[in-house]
Design a protein around this nucleic acid. Structure first.
Length: 484
DNA sequence: TGAAATGTTGGGGCG
DNA sequence: ACGCCCCAACATTTC
């Protein structure tokens, strides 16, 4: 009888720096890699359309890499526990005994709970359960303050993290990996039906290379150039100044240890700007870590404000306003540019995420949960921890939150970070001919300027859905109602 | 990882 | 030469 391991892939869709593969290689046992598509088990946060598009390509890439190692990647769908049980039974019929199921910790509360249930059920059948850490620099239970409590403020969290001796990725003896004598049947990738209907994600392919090679290429490319000017350029949405590694990190095509180690190595470079840039980038990686830890410690914060006072905030849900925001038809060029970039590429520049989120929550008084839902459905880097933390941060109700009265002025943000209007012109083509001076506030432009730019407000491009000063005053008044 | 309102300062024009 | 006013420019506080 052959004794094997099942390597259950989830959000660790990579070969290198994958602890379960290291474990399998070290054991010398045959290993059967499996991916189970079970979107319902994450409900209400089943992956959105953009995420599924990415997942499809990530699986394809992983399948190719495993194949090169002589391993299959079995694709199945349905209830995770049932699929695993079926596999165990089928293999037993072929004289193969599954000794253990290997995987990596998941940090979304529902999935962690699902894993716990699976672990208990499998234990009942005498199967061992082994989990490693593929997704975080440090497990949440190792990052507590001096009173043994989780950090709620980023800066002390960051100060602790950067002083930790983080383990660099360990090389894996890939030659030791081999498949079992019998490999059960797999679904084809297309049978998982991850790709959306024709048309919608057309722009994604032009923007992204969602493969494992693409992941490493993106990391190398970022660290060999843009990171040098990261401190300032990351705020300019018209530039490729950010790393754009978020989707790779979400699906585990890159692990945080790999990224951390690579950026650390770049910090030994001689130039000061490179060092500062690398440090600023590590800090962003620490925000990702902070978000995961917070959702782990406060598992209700995907739907409920961390600060309970905000449960009584007088939101004014309005489907029409939300739709204008989603479609990029608010009349504020920077906001609309961001929302259209999101729709067309499954991604939005980080600074613009803050601007559009602030606009929805403060100018339009829409619940942050509705904004989070839209991001969830349209971002290909949608990550529950980052998304929840980010929205709560903007809304003022989360950990280390931006004070509620910190209200972005979309015109000033535009003039400051997109001074020439290049970003707006790219994503809001109907404003392409507007001169710099009015690109962020076309309603201020004289009739002759509008005419020359071929813009008829209310027809080619909307009037602002709210007036900034009034909206700002209304938001501050709404805040009063929960702070008195 | 704001913005706006308000306060302060200092240079220059001018009587 | 001096005081007065205006108003950038910058700093502080308030939302």
């Amino acid at each position: 009888m052959q004794h094997i391991y099942i390597a259950w892939f989830r959000q660790d869709l990579r070969i290198h720096d994958n602890p379960m593969l290291a474990e399998a290689a070290a054991s010398g046992r045959p290993v059967l890699p499996v991916f189970i598509h079970a979107p319902d088990e994450a409900a209400p946060w089943s992956p959105g359309g953009a995420s599924c598009w990415w997942l499809h390509h990530a699986l394809q890439s992983l399948q190719e890499k495993l194949q090169a190692l002589g391993l299959p990647l079995l694709l199945r769908q349905g209830c995770s526990l049932e699929v695993l049980r079926d596999l165990v039974n089928e293999l037993r019929g072929k004289g193969i005994s599954v000794r253990a199921v290997l995987s990596s910790h998941l940090h979304e509360p529902r999935l962690a709970k699902r894993d716990d249930d699976v672990r208990l059920q499998l234990a009942g059948q005498g199967l061992n359960w082994w989990q490693g850490n593929a997704g975080l620099l440090l497990e949440p239970d190792r990052m507590l303050n001096q009173s043994g409590m989780p950090y709620r403020v980023f800066t002390p969290f960051w100060n602790k993290l950067r002083r930790e001796a983080l383990q660099p990725p360990q090389p894996i003896d890939f030659a030791a990996l081999h498949a079992p004598d019998h490999v059960p049947a797999s679904l084809s990738l297309s049978e998982l039906r991850l790709l959306p209907g024709i048309g919608w994600s057309g722009g994604f392919g032009a923007r992204w290379n969602p493969s494992l090679d693409g992941a490493h290429q993106a990391l190398r490319q970022f660290l060999s150039g843009p990171v040098q000017h990261y401190v300032h350029q990351r705020d300019l949405p018209a530039q490729a100044g950010t790393s754009a590694l978020s989707p790779y990190l979400h699906f585990g095509q890159l692990g945080p240890r790999q990224v951390w180690a690579a950026a650390q190595a770049a910090m030994h470079a001689t130039s000061t700007t490179q060092q500062e840039g690398s440090l600023a980038f590590l800090r962003e990686l620490a925000w990702r870590e902070f978000a995961c830890h917070l959702l782990h410690h406060f598992p209700h914060t995907d739907l409920q404000p961390l600060n309970p006072r905000y449960a009584a905030f007088p939101w004014q849900p309005d489907a029409g306003l939300q739709q204008a925001w989603q479609k990029g038809q608010t009349g504020y060029p920077l906001v609309d540019a961001g929302m259209r970039q999101l729709w067309q590429t499954g991604w939005m520049h980080n600074r613009i995420r803050m601007v559009v989120a602030s606009f929805l929550v403060k100018h339009l008084l829409q619940p942050w949960q509705d904004g989070a839902r839209w991001f969830w459905d349209t971002l290909c880097d949608a990550d529950l921890a980052n998304n929840s933390l980010g929205w709560q941060w903007v809304a003022g109700c989360g950990a280390d939150a931006s004070p509620y009265f910190r209200i972005f002025n979309p015109v000033l943000q535009g003039e400051k970070f997109d001074p020439k209007g290049d970003y707006v012109r790219q994503w809001v083509p109907e404003l392409a001919r507007m001169p710099e001076r009015y690109i962020h506030q076309p309603w201020k432009a004289p009739g002759s300027v509008l005419q020359q730019a071929a813009v008829r407000l209310g027809q080619d491009y909307p009037w602002p859905v709210v007036e900034h000063r009034a909206a700002r005053a209304r938001a501050l008044k709404a805040l009063d109602s929960i702070t008195i």
